[in-house]
Structure formats: structure tokens, C-alpha cells
């Protein structure tokens, strides 16, 4: 029994070397399809320690695995290490790297990477324009987006819909008016809670209004029955004042959050549009 165990361990220790590089990569792909990224990365790291050559290929597959696992900073770091432009997956590496950089808001690096590389096929040339346009839209650089998007041909089924979608988002952004924090503050000063309703947070605004009314009425009651020096008036008056001022500041802050949420939602939509063609073109 012991000898069988030792033989088995010996056999397994040579497994990684016994497998050809392509066999290992096919196995990595199987692991990735099954979303078994931990095992995939483990195997790729083992391959690195036993394979002196083909490091570019390994870096690409590590980057791709991180990309599939949505660890996009790590993905970009490994795609950056791929240097050999003659590799069959060089183009894929460039586009996935650029997309990873866009996700982590490294827009300039993504654009530089795309601009530095030229592609032979018209499909990839158009895809490059599409991704570059998307990057400028993420940055809200409308002038450059408008300029690049004139190249959108909508001839490629892989991203014709997404080209239309980016142009539609551009139109939405053109028509969108950001809400004013100053206006929200003024609204809340006049009628507590309305600044938050203006920000689109109706429930929060109504809640604030009701609470203000509760404190306000008790302050008025204390003043009416006991006068301005009464403990009841001072306590409820203080609570009302703190809440009133806090609500004005809160309304201004709510506008900032609402604007950020809007921008995040738009950026998410853009990134989805930029992502779909990559999966279609390179799978």
C-alpha cells in the first residue's frame, strides 16, 4: 500500500512536466469555463515555475483568468507583461488589457495602448475606434467622442448595436441636466425635505419633512404655552434647529450622491457596451 502511495505521489509530481504546454492550457481553459479560477491560477503559477520559455503566453493566460474572475487590476498588470507582438493572441491581449484599464478608470493608459497598436483587419480597426470612442465617452470628452464616432459604420454585427447604443448614451448625456446642489439647499431651507425630493429621493424627503414638522410643532407648542425661556421650547427648538440646518447640508450632499449615481449608472452601461463586442469577436 505504501509503495503504491509513493508511486502515485511520484507520478503526480511529474504530471505538470509530462503534460505539454498546449495540454495544460487546454486544461486551464476547461477550468475557466467552469469558473474554477483559483485552480486555474494555481496551475498557471506552477507552469511558470517549471517553464522557462513562453512566459508571454503564461502572462496572457494569467491575465485572462484574472479578467474572467473580474480582478481587473491584476488582469491589466499581467496583460502589461505580454511583450511579444507576434503571439497569436496579441490582439486579444491588447483589447482585453484596454478594457481592464477602462474598468479601473485608467483611461489615458487604455487609449495609449489602443493608439500604439495597429491592426490589419478592418474588423479590429473598427473595434479599436469603438473602444477609443467609449473611453472618451467615459471621460465625458464629447468633442473627441463625436469625432471618432463619425467612423462608426455599423457594418459589423459584433458591435453594430453597441455603436448605436453609445451614440444614444451620448445624446442622453447631451440632454441631461445635472441637478444643482445650491437649488437643493434653497428648497430645503424653504420647505424641509423638498431638496431631497428634488434630488429624486422622495421617500427620504417626505421622512425629513415629517420629522421636521414633528419637532417644529413641539417647538411652537413650547413657545405658545411656556414662552421663549422655557425648557420645553429650548429643547425642542434646539432639536428642530439642528435638524433643520442638518437637512439643508444633507440635501446638498444628496444632490452630489444623486449625480454620482447617475454617472456610475451611465458608465456601467457604457462598459457593458464596450465589453460585449470583445466577447463576441474573440470567442
Amino acid at each position: 500500500m505504501r509503495s503504491i502511495l509513493i508511486a502515485l505521489i511520484g507520478f503526480m509530481s511529474h504530471q505538470i512536466m509530462a503534460q505539454t504546454f498546449d495540454e495544460n492550457i487546454a486544461f486551464v481553459n476547461y477550468l475557466n469555463v467552469n469558473r474554477n479560477y483559483e485552480q486555474s491560477l494555481f496551475l498557471l503559477n506552477k507552469m511558470k515555475s517549471t517553464t522557462s520559455s513562453r512566459t508571454d503566453s503564461l502572462n496572457f493566460f494569467v491575465g485572462k483568468t484574472y479578467y474572467l474572475d473580474q480582478q481587473l487590476q491584476n488582469a491589466s498588470d499581467f496583460f502589461d507583461k505580454v511583450q511579444d507582438t507576434s503571439l497569436p493572441f496579441w490582439n486579444e491581449s491588447v483589447f482585453f488589457n484596454a478594457f481592464s484599464k477602462l474598468n479601473i478608470e485608467h483611461y489615458s493608459e487604455a487609449e495609449k495602448l489602443l493608439k500604439e497598436n495597429s491592426f490589419e483587419s478592418n474588423l479590429l480597426k473598427s473595434l479599436k475606434d469603438f473602444e477609443l470612442a467609449g473611453s472618451h465617452l467615459l471621460r465625458r470628452d464629447f468633442v473627441t467622442f463625436d469625432y471618432i464616432s463619425t467612423n462608426f459604420s455599423q457594418n459589423y454585427f459584433q458591435f453594430s448595436q453597441q455603436e448605436k447604443s453609445l451614440i444614444s448614451i451620448r445624446e442622453d448625456l447631451r440632454n441631461h441636466k445635472s441637478k444643482s446642489p445650491l437649488l437643493a439647499g434653497i428648497f430645503s431651507a424653504v420647505v424641509p425635505g423638498t431638496g431631497r425630493i428634488y434630488a429624486g429621493k422622495t421617500g427620504l424627503g417626505l421622512g425629513t419633512l415629517i420629522t421636521s414638522v414633528i419637532f417644529g410643532l413641539q417647538t411652537w407648542e413650547g413657545y405658545r404655552k411656556d414662552g421663549v425661556e422655557s425648557a420645553r421650547f429650548i429643547i425642542f427648538g434646539s432639536l428642530f434647529s439642528i435638524f433643520y440646518v442638518g437637512n439643508i447640508w444633507g440635501s446638498v450632499y444628496t444632490i452630489k450622491i444623486a449625480n454620482e449615481e447617475f454617472n456610475e449608472a451611465v458608465n456601467h452601461k457604457i462598459l457593458v457596451d464596450l465589453h460585449i463586442p470583445l466577447r463576441t469577436v474573440f470567442n
Binding site: 505521489i9 503526480m12 509530481s13 504530471q15 486544461f27 476547461y30 477550468l31 474554477n36 485552480q39 494555481f42 496551475l43 506552477k46
Partner: peptide
């Protein structure tokens, strides 16, 4: 592979399934 390297062993058992 070292004795007790369960992580590595798990990957290799998965490879058997893959085959």
C-alpha cells in the same frame, strides 16, 4: 509535488475528471 500539497493534488484530480 510535496507530500501534503493538497491544493496541487486537487488540481491534478480535477485534471483526471477533465480527461
Amino acid at each position: 509535488m510535496d507530500i501534503g500539497d493538497y491544493e496541487y493534488a486537487a488540481v491534478e484530480y480535477e485534471r483526471i475528471v477533465y480527461n
